[in-house]
Design a binder for these strands. Sequence first.
DNA 1: TGCAAAAATGCACGCCATGCAAATTCACCC
DNA 2: GGGTGAATTTGCATGGCGTGCATTTTTGCA
Lengths: 202, 202
Amino acid sequence: MSLPEDPPLGLRERKKRATRDALADTALRMAAERGLEEVTVEAVTAEVGVSVRTFFNYFGHLDDAILVADPDGTERVRRAITGSTAGGTTLSVLREALSAELTHIEEGHGRWELQCTVLEHTPSLFPRFLAARGADEQALIAAVAERLGVGVDTDLRPRLLVHTTLAAVRAAVELWTATGRARPLKAFYDEAFTELATALQG
Amino acid sequence: MSLPEDPPLGLRERKKRATRDALADTALRMAAERGLEEVTVEAVTAEVGVSVRTFFNYFGHLDDAILVADPDGTERVRRAITGSTAGGTTLSVLREALSAELTHIEEGHGRWELQCTVLEHTPSLFPRFLAARGADEQALIAAVAERLGVGVDTDLRPRLLVHTTLAAVRAAVELWTATGRARPLKAFYDEAFTELATALQG
DNA sequence: TGCAAAAATGCACGCCATGCAAATTCACCC
DNA sequence: GGGTGAATTTGCATGGCGTGCATTTTTGCA
């Protein structure tokens, strides 16, 4: 169940995407298997069958290839935000969209599991992982702004709502990991919103 | 008005700190003056008067030296969290501590202004800037956990409260910057908490 | 088939970052 | 004040990273 691409991409574009995906997938898999330190750009390109120089046409750094987000996930969330015509506050829509994505992740889909493996073995990579999520963040903010019908640079709310929801995601994921996945990720996530409401009322 | 150091540091420790500070200050100043791309580790060490190898004894990357936080600020916030015996919720203490720090920053103290100059000229550095703030984040979480008397890995609240407060900080700073500092930073910050309360109640 | 644009490639270059062993500096104590 | 051991600095060598540029190959389209 892949997402439908709007225009039927030409051969050129399809090949580019295939190469990019192959590089990202190979880099991530190799890093998960043998550890980040044992992976070189040369080894990745050798397995994919392109030149080293080509790698750097697609990614600025080796880490970028390993840490790029699952593009499907980004698109799913965006559509959930802008497409939902149902009622409810913007925050609840945002909360639900991310909740669905967390479930998707918890079930082992996407690149998440492999990325976690790499991060466990190389904690120093974690800040860069968060940094790589910055792109998703901007996309989220733009989607929320679109839904609210305001500009990202004139209204505080899009940024605030996204950052706050991601705060809940972060806290939930961190504790989920720290407790050895003692409870379902979604339980921590829901608890976060409950605690948040309490903290802001008292 | 520097912070009092508890033990009267020996010559060795003082020299180490002086070298570290000189490297960080020089790297940041050079980057602000001539742009990050024009700064090399060699140039920094030449000006400070140490070897290149010594630089890497203190910092893992050139960026690290540029993006390290003002240690005084980190310490100020930590003391505000753990030291305050006044009433109020943990969130309000946290909110107030960060508010004071924002004021301090807005008045042009610390490394903030120079770092902003570098970031404006090199936006690609911004994610790494946020990543560098990760250390502060951990310190904050630990301080809040101490105040609450709970463990960081067993209770959701320390992480949640810190991440949420930082969400408000982030949204406020981003909009403050995006609007060309149309209003005081603190105004955006306070509005963020107001909006937050509204969003979570509705 | 032939042409123009886009992409991939090879090469050169400088910087980054680390390990290791030798030299230097510091703290401590006689 | 001089000697001793530990901490720190340093030079050197090494390998990978990341980029600019000119060239070759591939693709889209007429």
